[in-house]
Amino acid sequence: MDFAGAYSAENLKFLLDGLYITLFVALLAIILSFVFGCIIGVIRYAKVPVLSPICLVLVELIRNLPLLLIIFFMRFALPEVGIKLGLVTAAIAALTIFEAAMISEIVRGGLTSVDKGQIEAGRSSGLTGMQTLWHIVLPQGLRRMVPPLVSQFISLLKDTSLAVIISLADLMHNAGIIIGHGYNYTIPILLLVALIYFTVNFLLSQLSKRLETKNA
């Protein structure tokens, strides 16, 4: 095991470049999947005619597909119909689609958990259905969604490593290249990559606990 060689300035910079891509892809996918997941979750919760059944079919379809298949589809299948996505865009699109389906169920479950008596109280006080949803259901539901949402975001961050299959220059991809330069780099580099993933995900979990305590 050559720790000194594995942790050279050049290799560390290369890993940091990969970490930047990992965090960039994860951040955009988190934002987009949260937005779309909330929209789909609200549509299903509100049982919007036509849209709700369509969302149900799409969510169940996506949730039962492997993420790797969706990544392959975005990168290699779409060009067959004239839609060409770059590596980063394909990874973000695949993660967004997959995670939005998961998040929509978290959102729907959080909204459903709000006591119906409060909803009835809001309607009896003169609020419309949308006003009740916005002022009463959403604020309470979102507080209950924090722990599962953060857990899903942590899963998303770890799932970015699957994009190595399409040669996205993320943390795992760059780690693999460094390992390929010297067989005695394997354990040092993998230990460092594991430490990086653990640190980022641990910080996210701690943030979740603080938010949960604050909203309790």
Rank of each mutant, 00 (worst) to 15 (best):
D2P: 02
F3V: 14
G5L: 11
A6P: 02
S8F: 08
A9S: 13
A9M: 12
L12T: 09
K13P: 00
F14N: 10
D17F: 12
G18D: 05
Y20Q: 06
Y20H: 07
I21H: 00
T22H: 10
F24D: 02
F24Q: 14
L28E: 01
L32Q: 03
S33G: 11
S33L: 10
F34L: 15
F36W: 13
C38Q: 02
C38A: 12
I39D: 06
I40T: 15
I40F: 14
G41P: 12
G41N: 12
I43Y: 10
S52I: 02
S52A: 15
S52C: 10
P53H: 04
C55R: 00
V57Q: 07
V59Y: 01
V59W: 00
E60N: 15
L61E: 03
I62Y: 07
R63Q: 12
R63N: 03
R63F: 03
N64G: 13
L65H: 05
L67N: 09
L68Y: 05
L68C: 08
L69P: 01
F72N: 06
R75C: 03
A77R: 01
A77W: 01
P79T: 01
E80L: 15
E80D: 11
G86C: 09
V88K: 00
T89D: 00
T89G: 00
A90P: 02
I92R: 00
A93V: 00
A94K: 01
A94S: 15
E99Q: 12
A101E: 08
I103T: 01
S104M: 11
V107K: 00
V107H: 01
R108Y: 11
L111N: 02
S113T: 08
K116W: 04
G117C: 08
Q118K: 12
E120K: 15
E120H: 14
G122E: 04
G122N: 11
G122T: 07
R123A: 12
G126A: 09
L127E: 08
T128H: 10
T128D: 09
Q131R: 13
Q131A: 15
L133R: 07
I136K: 04
L138D: 01
P139A: 07
P139F: 02
Q140Y: 10
Q140F: 08
G141T: 08
R144M: 13
V146C: 10
P148V: 04
L149C: 05
V150W: 02
F153I: 12
S155G: 15
S155E: 05
L156T: 08
K158E: 10
D159M: 03
D159P: 01
D159F: 02
T160F: 03
A163E: 02
I165N: 09
I166F: 08
I166A: 06
I166L: 10
S167W: 02
S167V: 13
L168C: 05
L171A: 05
M172W: 01
G176C: 08
G176V: 10
I179V: 15
I179C: 06
I179T: 11
G180Q: 06
G182A: 15
Y185C: 07
I187A: 14
I187E: 11
P188F: 01
I189Y: 04
L190R: 03
L191G: 06
V193C: 14
I196S: 09
Y197M: 07
V200D: 05
N201Q: 10
N201F: 04
L203R: 07
L204S: 05
L204N: 06
S205I: 03
K209L: 13
R210G: 12
R210L: 14
R210W: 11
L211A: 15
E212K: 04
T213C: 04
A216T: 09
A216P: 02
A216S: 13
